[in-house]
Design a protein around this nucleic acid. Structure first.
Ligand code: FES
Ligand code: FES
Lengths: 144, 144
DNA sequence: AGTATTACTATCATTATAGTAGTAATAATA
DNA sequence: TATTATTACTACTATAATGATAGTAATACT
């Protein structure tokens, strides 16, 4: 049950954009430096986020990325679903046609419950929660 | 966030043993037939379950496997933890030494919350819950 | 024109997953 | 005692997913 790096890095990327919200677009380079991640890899993650309408971009020099909505309107679930696919722990539970046993399989209910619980938890955390927590803790990570 | 087949098949295996609880040991062959799974693959899953004390075995002809505890004392979490490793969605959250950023990383809290929620959900379901539901629904799947 | 940035595509190495296969050990039973 | 049915254990393999790197094209500011 590991969350992929795609999803985890994606949340960190979005957190950085949340921190910057209201200001100028942010360079991928700066996000990569702050989060100690590969800029090239991040560039792959930010594309689906843009395609899904969570992020806007500005091309060319002095361009960058910025949130398309206020951070309180973006949940971790939004991000994870885009980068991870869906949240179902088993394909059986999302579509009856995917598993011949689904009509009489008892364990299926387990994965459905689990999915709901995961979904609820991730939905309950917004980017703004992360940003506020960060500011509250006055975390100093150097840099400008 | 897919659950591995190891964990999912393991739950089904344990469900079969739960259904049989109180009776004679059950052949892996019969579990495999009922659940439409490979007997050889199941034999790999049942070993760690035995090593962890959830299952007992009887060797030789007329042998088989049986639950080591009553089904109401075995949770899905017990099974998944054995076959899947731990439930942490990110290694960061289980041990500070695993991630240099852990002392100041905000997103870490997300995965910790998620782990707790997953853990709570899986812990809330016992084998007996599955067995009772099965019997209540009087599901007919043929065979003896 | 030059430079900084996003956008896009291709490729690759590593690991994890899922499963197969075969043999040895054990014990009931004929 | 020989046979057979079963668990126990180990090794192997094919495929897919993951996590990344690299390079080029497009865009727009200075
Ligand atoms: S629904 Fe697919 S195996 Fe249970
Ligand atoms: S704690 Fe490891 S990246 Fe956040």
């Amino acid at each position: 049950m590991k969350m992929s790096t795609r999803a985890r890095y994606g949340v960190r990327l979005m957190f950085e954009l949340g921190l910057r919200y209201g200001g100028k677009p942010m360079f991928l380079k700066d996000i990569a430096r702050n989060e100690e991640l590969s800029e090239k890899y991040l560039s792959q993650l930010v594309m689906p986020l843009k395609a899904s309408g969570l992020v806007n971009s500005v091309r060319g020099a002095q361009g960058g990325y910025l949130l398309a909505r206020p951070p309180e309107q973006i949940t971790v679930k939004d991000i994870v679903e885009i980068l991870e696919g869906d949240l179902a722990p088993s394909d059986c539970s999302k579509d009856n046609s995917l598993c011949a046993r689904s009509s009489y399989c008892i364990t299926r209910g387990v994965w459905e419950k689990l999915e709901k619980s995961i979904s609820k938890t991730l939905k309950s955390i917004t980017l703004n929660d992360l940003v506020s927590k960060f500011k509250k803790e006055k975390i100093n990570r150097g840099g400008k």
